[in-house]
Design a protein around this nucleic acid. Structure first.
Lengths: 203, 203
DNA sequence: AATTTTTGTGAACAGTGTTCATATCCAAAA
DNA sequence: TTTTGGATATGAACACTGTTCACAAAAATT
């Protein structure tokens, strides 16, 4: 049974090969302007070969989106150490913005890019991205339960906080902070977060 | 001199013809997947003709972006009636979200799409989009001057408020609110805004 | 009426995603 | 060891893309 296993392993290697080439090309040139032929060139295979491992270009995209979501989930792992829900929520904000500024391309992949949602698999991968939001909601719920907020409208609170951090990252990722000098942008984002944290205390 | 004027007028008509065809195609099929040939077909001219009026596809994009920014500016005109800066700021938030939800495609054009910034002209059109932010900042400054905020850090306040409303609209526009039922999304956005407005009172 | 300028176009070039018949390879069966 | 069968890889093709350019038609100027 070793030959079949090796075959399986080789197949998986090839998939990874394609995906890593695709990702690095995407980082360089942007998602839209990288072609199947570019990826094929990078891995030194024929364009047609790629279609043996992925149904079409959007499936490559979906696979990368899935991986990006995994990276983001891992980024939030340290939160599990924090018992206090309020601390967890505050740290969540910091980690969220950290991730967005550091891995702009992955964030874009998950939360900004107009995803080609043709495949059923995408539904699944979208759910992975949504895990973040779910974790967010749960933390807010814990804060509500522990009376850290006056309001009990968990849904609206979670959405409001999420919209804010998303706004911060989205403006950064899509280069809409030109009115601020490049070296000040990150600082401004963090200053804003502490300001927002203070604002949260009235909730 | 009447002939030259007429020529100029016809040239302008043709530009408008191209732009309106492009915009309506963009609304239908998305910006990336509409081709010059599609636009040419729509206006019943040869693809090559379009290049007599626009240097390339991205210039058509830039022109539309410019127009979108104008529409948005007009959307905010009622604000000029409001003397009180705090009222103006609150109404700004409502109008911002109104615009984002109603004209999602235009908002996308201005604040989300990865703009092809090759041309110098884009700098100009970007400035138009930035006008909104400038107006925003000025209103915040007026509020600071009138002691509506405890804080005097105008830049950070303006950025924080802007990030929030952008976050709200961006999540909506790019379809990242799937966890909320479609008919509840607008309501949630508005509820969140009133929540955020309350939060602003601690600033 | 002849000439110049403006406006429009078909054909072409190099690129794209995708498909498919064909060729190559390699493990298992004869 | 040779033959067979199934997986893997590919060149060529199809219909598309943005863009250019030599050329034609039309309109304005001389």
């Amino acid at each position: 049974m070793s030959i079949a296993e090796r075959k399986e392993r080789e197949k998986e290697e090839m998939r990874r090969n394609i995906l890593s080439a695709a990702l690095s090309l995407f980082r360089e040139k942007g998602y839209d302007s990288v072609s199947i032929r570019n990826i094929a060139d990078a891995i030194e295979y024929s364009p047609a070969t790629i279609y043996l491992y992925f149904r079409d270009k959007s499936e490559i995209f979906a696979a990368l989106q899935y991986e990006a979501a995994s990276v983001m989930r891992n980024h939030f792992m340290p939160l599990l150490q924090l018992e206090n829900p309020w601390e967890r929520l505050i740290e969540f904000g910091h980690l969220y913005i950290d991730f967005g500024l550091k891995h702009s391309d992955l964030y874009d992949l998950i939360f900004i890019i107009r995803a080609p949602m043709e495949h059923v698999e995408n539904q699944e991968c979208w759910n992975v991205g949504m895990t973040v939001h779910k974790f967010f909601s749960e933390t807010v719920q814990a804060c509500v339960d522990a009376r850290y907020f006056k309001s009990t409208d968990t849904a609206t609170i979670a959405y409001t906080l999420w919209a804010y951090v998303h706004g911060i990252v989205a403006l950064f990722v899509r280069d809409r902070m030109r009115m601020y000098p490049p070296e000040k942008r990150e600082e401004l984002a963090r200053k804003s977060l502490t300001m927002f944290t203070k604002m949260m205390e009235v909730l």
